[in-house]
Amino acid sequence: MQNSFDFQYVFELLPTLFRYLGVTMEMALWGFVFALILALGLALVRVFKIPVIQHLAALFISFFRGTPLLVQLFLLYYGLPQISPLFLMDAFTAAVLGLTLHFAAYMAESIRAAILGIDKSQMEACLSIGMTRLQAMKRVILPQASRVATPSLMNYFIDMIKSTSLAFTLGVAEIMAKAQMEASSSFKFFESFLAVAVIYWIIVLFFTRIQHLLEYKLNEAY
């Protein structure tokens, strides 16, 4: 049994894993876009306290924040099709949907907190000059709230990238799934999972840098 660490194997495996990076990033990007749209809707429903719907939004947020992502993925991919064939979906779609619903619940609370953090006098000033609440929200409140919410939203995006690794449990051929297959065939488990860890680390460092530049740009006027 070979116990020595195989550096050459890691370097040879990295290019193979990078070929599957596109699938990982596609899941994360689609998931983030859909989650952001859903989160904004949930946040506005709770901020405006729309009757009935605000309670449904709160229930949605409570469920998806209070249950593990892996359980949610299994419910979507394996559970829902047992209820009706209409819920049948491929593994990639189920993974994106799971990421969307899970992170929308967290992002909604960040957006809501950012909106509520804007001084109420600004909404009152907008209403006093004839704007509707929606116009004031669109033109004045949300642009300021976006600056406040950006750091937490970027953190959720980075977390979403790492969470795509759970998609391999549904059979999605992304970098984690490829690392698992390579480890099983070569029995070099440490080397294989170290290689995939390095890739995730590089991705996170890249987007962390993007986050810092974005925060600096948004704060220039302040």
Rank of each mutant, 00 (worst) to 15 (best):
I202W: 13
V172S: 12
F87W: 07
K162T: 06
A221P: 02
Q135P: 01
V52P: 07
P15V: 03
F32H: 06
I61W: 03
E191W: 01
A173V: 04
I158P: 01
L213E: 02
Y200H: 08
M181Q: 14
A108H: 01
F63E: 06
I203E: 03
G171C: 10
P68T: 00
Q82G: 02
Q122T: 10
W201R: 09
A183T: 04
P51G: 11
L194R: 13
D119F: 05
H102R: 08
L116K: 08
M154A: 14
A104W: 03
A125P: 15
F207G: 07
E215W: 02
D159T: 06
E191G: 12
V52G: 06
L99K: 12
A149Y: 01
A105G: 10
Y78N: 08
A177G: 09
S62Y: 09
I61L: 06
L116G: 03
L218W: 00
A43T: 00
S185L: 11
P81Q: 12
E124S: 12
S62K: 15
V204A: 13
I210W: 03
R147G: 12
F34N: 11
V52T: 08
W30K: 13
R139G: 04
L56M: 09
H55E: 14
N219I: 00
G41P: 13
L13M: 12
Y20M: 11
A195N: 05
M123T: 03
Y106M: 05
E191R: 13
L134G: 06
L13D: 07
M176S: 14
I50T: 11
Q122V: 07
A105V: 08
A104M: 05
F74E: 02
W201Y: 10
I141S: 01
M1A: 13
L21H: 04
F5D: 06
K178W: 04
L116S: 05
F207L: 09
E26N: 10
L70G: 10
A197I: 06
T164Q: 15
A35Y: 02
L42Y: 03
A94C: 05
Q144V: 00
Y106E: 04
T93S: 15
L73F: 14
F60D: 10
R147S: 13
Y78H: 05
E191D: 13
D6S: 10
G31S: 11
F206K: 02
F34A: 15
V33M: 06
K178A: 13
S192R: 11
F7Q: 13
F206I: 11
L116Y: 00
A43Y: 01
M154L: 10
K49I: 02
F7P: 06
F87P: 04
F32T: 15
S84V: 00
F187M: 14
G41T: 05
L17N: 13
M89C: 06
V71Q: 05
S185E: 03
L127D: 04
A113Y: 00
I161V: 15
A125H: 11
K49F: 01
Q211E: 04
M137H: 03
G41A: 08
A108M: 04
F32N: 08
Q180H: 06
E215G: 11
A108W: 00
I83L: 14
S146F: 01
I50D: 09
A108D: 02
L86S: 14
F190R: 11
P85E: 10
F189S: 09
H212Y: 07
Y216T: 11
